[in-house]
Design a protein around this nucleic acid. Structure first.
Lengths: 197, 197, 197, 197
DNA sequence: TATGAATGAGGTTTCATTCAT
DNA sequence: TATGAATGAAACCTCATTCAT
């Protein structure tokens, strides 16, 4: 009798184990034990160890992309969208610290992996940010001089770094506050605004 | 007569090999061959394979810290300092793309590494940014509401992500431009300034 | 289906290989080949190379202890017991010269081994001899001045040396004769008995 | 300027190091450090690591053979000779526990070693005991039925085992007592003598 | 589908030995 | 003679993957 969710159980187990030990130090047999299946069973669902990581990435990105799209769906204001995006990312990361570590840390580790894997989901993620920025420029709330893809990358780097340190760290600030401060920083910049003076 | 630079030769070789294959896929014998020494020689200078990575980190951080301190030495204006910091980071990364990959990608993979290694140099790096922000707040050019450590982390994440993608990528923009755009983004934010309207 | 005797096959192979090459010169892959298993299979049954030696010791001591207890079971006379003990030891050694070499030669080499391994089985072996001597003293056939533990050690040393040289050597004498001569020596001593004169 | 005793210093160091770690676990560089010479210097005096062990054996046997011959020189009575032999062996062992371990333990370890090495010194050692026994038989104090070479081996085995356990152990008895008890055991045997009754 | 015992390729590391000085 | 940095062969062991059941 096959468990229809066995594949998912293995993916979930892999996220936990990869996050704790790192992809290369994690053993397939650990993933199997955590998933409650036999070692060999894993190879009925995945081509090899690296394939597990790829699938983790694929499905996790699909999940967070869906969440982002849902979160942004009803919103019109680019500023609100940016805030929503940051908040959603922080929440996703805080929901599963393990997932965050796998996505942000393990994923980068293998140049080979980066080169062979379909990075489109990541590109789409960056694209969401870039689109928000462009919308803001179109409606005249964001400065037009800004290169949207570069800014998107900067925004992602900042959010990623903060959420990682937040997930791994001592959490001096609340999740809400961290997300909101990050957005404010990007919206207003560091520079004191003359009209605030 | 022992070559006084043999240790450095091994470190340089390791940076190349680790960047190309990733730390875990790199073989010690590859590092040895690249360095032009025998396999065993490596163990005269390093405790084990991971120790090479740790030393790469240590020395590279020391190097870039020194460069940053030198770059910031004569400057007083926090805005100029932030620009100088970003530019110096971009230059360092572009000078050795391999080193950048090792530091930003390989370094993160090993929880063991993160736990066992003295992370103070990285803390100092963040500290430099935080200090610049605080100075800006003191002299009244930066907004006081900003949490300096968090902002520093965001700035670092953005610069790191951008410089890495710049180093690995197709470089549509010049180094100078990339660094300057990054700084502008952080100084002014995305939001269109009323006084620009 | 796992072969339930695979562990035993490895132990038997190890005895042969260790006896022929010596523990430190023997290669794990030789043991594997002799046992007809893959190298890695050994590590399913043993912690490491030294663990094989420890298990050989453990099981061999258990075996010879059982044989000695069986041989002595029906006997009452301490003199007969001593003869039986010596004969049983000689037979055990002659049955497996390789095992004898491993136990008496290889075992001693490793201080680490001596320190880490449970030496109680060996103590029990000595204890059997000591007990025979004490029984003889109690019933008045053995001299009371003799220190039983020391004498037991001497008896063991003599029997061990003789059985080993017998097993390794040209066997000028029969097994029976060698065992019986050894016992006689210890019973009567070298000195010509006045009552024999 | 060559130290004329450097070879001896290395041999002494080797005895200490081999005894502590065992021949195979001992490192040549440890011997060198203990001897206060450079690693390479060892190879000016010895062919290789095993050659050090062989020379240790050779010189130590020569030394103890000389001591035995000296101890037995003035004696006529075979019984006194046997006592003297045992005492001398025990003293030699107690003088250098390290030497005892090397001779009795390390020497045996390598079948290869035993086969390739000139074992004549050991044969001579056994010969001394056998000769004493034969003299005793000739003058009528030892029983003629005894096979002298076998008895010699038994005596050696007993003395060796006792001295080893004495050297490694807790020394419940004094050296003198141990030697004397051993001799008594071999002279009189375990059996209660009718004329003692 | 599921199992898990068995496989065996291959990497890290050690350390006896060499040799340029 | 003496040094000790450098060498590089080789072995233990791991662990991803297979396959007979």
């Amino acid at each position: 009798m096959s468990q229809p969710n066995k594949r998912q159980r293995i993916l979930d187990a892999a996220i936990q184990v990869f996050a704790q030990y790192g992809f290369y130090n994690a053993k397939v047999s650990q993933v199997a034990r955590q998933a409650g299946v036999a070692d060999g069973t894993i190879y009925l669902y995945f081509k090899n160890k690296e394939d597990i990581l790829i699938q983790v990435f694929r499905e996790s990105m699909a999940e967070i992309l869906a969440r982002q799209e849902e979160a942004l769906a009803g919103l019109g204001d680019p500023i609100e969208k940016l805030e929503a995006f940051a908040r959603t990312h922080f929440i996703a990361v805080s929901t599963s610290r393990a997932l965050a570590e796998v996505i942000t840390v393990e994923l980068r580790q293998s140049t080979k992996f980066m080169r062979n894997t379909d990075m489109k989901p990541f590109g789409r993620y960056l694209g969401i940010i870039a689109r928000i920025i462009e919308e803001g420029q179109e409606v005249g709330v964001f400065a037009r001089e800004i290169h949207s893809r570069m800014a998107a990358r900067a925004v992602f780097g900042a959010i990623d770094e903060l959420s990682l340190s937040w997930a791994m760290g001592k959490r001096q600030t609340s999740l809400e506050e961290a997300a909101s401060q990050t957005t404010m920083l990007f919206l207003n910049g560091l520079r004191l605004r003359p009209d605030h003076a």
